Simulated assay, not measured.
Amino acid sequence: MKIPTLVVATLATSLSAEAAVVTITALDVRGTGVFGHDANVSSVTINGATPGTLTADPVNVRLTYSNLNLDGDATANDSVTFTLTAAGGGAAQRIWGQGIDTGFGNLNDVTMTVSAVSGTTTDSGQIIVFDGFTGANAGTGGDGIFANTVQINGTTVNLATTGSGFQFVVAGVDFAPTPAVLFDNSVGTGGSIVARSYDLQFSTIPEPSSLSLLALAGGLLASRRKR
């Protein structure tokens, strides 16, 4: 039995159109937890334990982020679990109350990645995937006038305090989706320098049976065009 081209094309279009792309912006990760996303973040562990100051290389932050709409159905009921890893900073690398650094006033050779992504959309069963980082922020804190810089994926970010009591300032850079973020070449006149927050883009791919249907649809369309 021949399947009409119009039906096949509609099937392929409807399956792919369900997916959405979402960006979790400014995911503020510190040794004391994940901040600014209280209604969304749960089950946070750092190197398998409850949050707390930790000196280690790597540092693995495992968390679940909920209330996402990743299947395009206008209902924010999807969740994704993933691990955010800081690695490469060496023996002094730590996660603490201000963020991630390589010793107070230093942030060098720290690469952030995301791994162990798991989750499917609630209504359509599509597989949630990590597309990449689309931005990152560094921070400086202290009681004084400080001028610090750090490179984020090769772009220099300036961090400065004015000296009017304790201040914590944040600045960052945006970029096209990339699998990793490197914080390096920190230079400063005092105060802390830390990796503070990240923008993470997630999307979906059809669940396996839908992928098979899409492949079948594509093959039938190609065969139809050859006739």
Rank of each mutant, 00 (worst) to 15 (best):
T10I: 05
A12N: 14
A138S: 09
V187I: 12
V44Y: 03
N108C: 11
G88E: 07
G99F: 10
S66K: 10
S14Q: 15
N148E: 10
A17W: 08
P4M: 05
N153M: 07
S43C: 03
G154I: 09
L68K: 00
F104E: 12
V59A: 07
L221F: 13
P206W: 02
G132K: 10
G132A: 12
F146Y: 10
V61F: 01
A91W: 07
T81G: 06
F133T: 01
P208C: 04
A86D: 08
L213S: 08
E18H: 02
D109R: 14
F183D: 01
G165I: 13
A91C: 12
T45M: 08
R30D: 01
I152K: 03
N185L: 08
I128Y: 04
S16I: 13
T25G: 04
M1L: 14
N158D: 14
V169M: 11
F146G: 02
V114D: 06
D199Q: 10
N158W: 06
G142E: 03
D71F: 07
A19I: 08
I145V: 12
D73A: 01
N47A: 05
Q93D: 05
Q98R: 15
T75S: 11
A26M: 05
E18F: 01
T25H: 01
A12E: 14
G218Q: 09
N106H: 11
A222M: 15
A86S: 12
I95K: 09
S42M: 10
A49N: 12
F104T: 15
T121R: 02
A91Q: 08
F166D: 08
G188R: 12
A138T: 11
T120S: 10
L54Q: 05
N158T: 12
